[in-house]
Nucleic acid binder design. Structure first.
Length: 290
DNA sequence: CGTTCATCCTGAGAGC
DNA sequence: TGCTCTCAGGATGAAC
């Protein structure tokens, strides 16, 4: 779940409450939360203890904390993915443990703890060496997101046009552009008036460029409202929900009138998940699909 | 090579 | 009440 805006809300919370502090101990519960850290949870906890958090960074839906060791440079990071239901919470030490508490970080300053709570545990933590560009090597396959200086809007539009691939698949492919998930893909497609099953090769370069602009814009607006939360699962580090859900035009709006033309928003299954769209503003292509 | 699919989990809500 | 079924903001690796 959390898509770029929700992850960015969390990153900002980490920048405000965790950066500059030195980790004292890290408690990891169970083996699943550190499953991507091959040497195991005990090794991860050992590596983290005593390190100072130098920065909180993000690419797409991935977060990481740059870690300094004394005076040394930060050549490693704690890589974090929230999966579908992960939360990072800054809380007093005496706050009761959450039901799905998987990690607890304490700090040398004896201030508030950082906790990783994840109902479904699709998210997780791992140690990651960082490359020359400062990006963890384990996420080298994740493309820049629309807010990254390295993001190449026109290059993507040009390349996408050469392949007959459904446009929503491309939007959701984190190796093409990162940060966009099911909600913001549907919102961007609605704004652009494009059905997600249209082939990228059937769209013009300018149309693809505008679609990417819509994706960036809708995520900017969502960030301005603290992200999208339908329930208590998506919260900032202080446990507060965003309210962009009230501004959604397509996602989750089945049966409600389209804000542009009044036609009822429809839903269909695509890639084993839901897609919401306006049947009139976003006509389904006839040449492909079933 | 590129692309699809099942899978990892827990909980909420609908329908019976 | 309780059961079964469907669905949920994601990413990965195995299988084609």
């Amino acid at each position: 779940m959390p898509e770029l805006p929700e992850v960015e809300v969390v990153r900002r919370g980490l920048a405000a409450h965790v950066v500059g502090r030195t980790l004292q101990t890290v408690e990891l519960r169970g083996t699943r939360v550190a499953r991507r850290h091959t040497p195991g949870p005990a090794d991860l906890a050992d590596r983290l203890a005593g390190r100072t958090v130098a920065a909180a960074r993000r690419r797409g839906k991935y977060l990481w904390l740059d870690l300094a060791d004394g005076e040394g440079p930060t050549d490693a990071a704690l890589l974090i993915h929230l999966g579908m239901s992960g939360q990072l919470l800054v809380e007093a030490a005496d706050a009761p443990d959450e039901k799905h508490l998987h990690a607890r970080f304490t700090f040398a300053d004896e201030g508030p703890q950082l906790r990783f709570v994840d109902q479904r545990t699709f998210g997780g933590l791992a140690w990651a060496p960082t490359g020359a560009d400062g990006i963890p090597e384990t996420i080298a396959h994740i493309a820049p997101d629309p807010f990254d200086p390295a993001f190449d809007r026109d290059g993507l539009a040009r390349r996408w046009r050469t392949r007959p691939r459904e446009i929503k698949r491309i939007l959701l492919d984190q190796g093409e552009v990162s940060g966009i998930g099911n909600i913001y893909a549907d919102e961007a497609l609605w704004r652009a008036g494009i059905h997600g099953r249209r082939l990228a090769s059937s769209l013009t370069g300018p149309a693809l460029g505008r679609l990417l602009d819509h994706a960036r814009d809708v995520m900017t607006e969502a960030l301005g409202q603290g992200g999208t939360s339908f329930d208590a699962l998506y919260v900032n580090v202080n446990g507060a929900s965003g309210y962009f859900d009230r501004s959604l035009a397509a996602y989750g709006q089945r049966g409600r009138p389209c804000g542009r033309c009044g036609t009822l928003i429809g839903r269909e299954v695509f890639m084993n998940r839901s897609s919401f769209f306006c049947p009139k503003c976003q006509p389904r292509p006839r040449t492909i699909g079933r």
